[in-house]
Amino acid sequence: MPAVEAIKPDKILKELGELWTNIGKPESSDEESQDGGVLRACAMTLISFVDDEEDAAALSETLAVLMKEHPSRAVVVRVKEGEDALSARVFAQCWMPFGHRRQICCEQVEITASMDRLADVAAIVAPLAVPDLPRVILLRSARVVRAGAIRKILPLGDKIVVDSARPGAPGFGELGGLLDAGHIAGDLAWTRITETRSLLAQILEGRKAANITVEYDGKEAGPETRYLHAWLESCLPDTRVALKGSGTAACGKPRTIRVDSDLTIQLTRGCAEIERGDVHQWANLPVGTDEELLNAELNIVVHDHIFERVLNQITA
């Protein structure tokens, strides 16, 4: 088996420097080109762990969308099964905002590593983080979650973001473990119900509800439904909050919230229909794309005490 070439963080940082020197050079000598140039933007280090099979284009698209709101040094670690492998490359993602003359560019480092080299990855990634700015780990790789090396990887981030609704993703148990270890954690399944919670907060404000039932599609409540149920229980200790599944084969997402006998909130994609006696109302309920949910999660690099309280209630 050929030996894998060593990867030195200093070399990667040097390549990044050269990259900026090159893309900063005007393409032509005309005045307009020199006026434009590129703007280097960085507000955080975003470290993504993905399984190698994940669609490269999808991840790249996600990062491109994230860059606009959260310009970052993106470090993408592709984790693959099989033989000893470790390689790295650097490149930049640029876009030209509409009506502007100057491109905005964010740097990206892509590291491909086999499972047995995950321990090395931590030593490579740590020096690549931009000093003084938040470091966020986006954990999409089910392999990494299962691997022992995760203990070395987690301390690289100020915050670890997962999506417990994804197949193979860390579940409530692992998330609880992160909290116990003192990490800041985020779960896109929780972010996904923000608008629903916000609407409920508005509708239920000042109301003393005796019974609330969260109905969901499917036989088992999915993470979003369980979060919603636990949140209502934790916020309204005097209210009996029940869960009720439809029993059909579905993904367990919340569908209807019934409050006592006079208020029903029907959640359909993108909207909520509210029935209070004979008054029928409607509210827009924006459905966040994964990128929008991530954007929201990247805005919060502090302990989210409400999320932590709800998660603790679920895992207790």
């Binding site: 923000t194 919670r197 916000s198 409920l200 907060a201 508005q202 239920l204 916020c235 409400i306």
Partner: peptide
Amino acid sequence: MSQETPLQDPLRFHRKAPP
């Protein structure tokens, strides 16, 4: 809208207009 009510989440909720 009061931020004191138990269902509020100032870290995440956007401000909403009252009825």
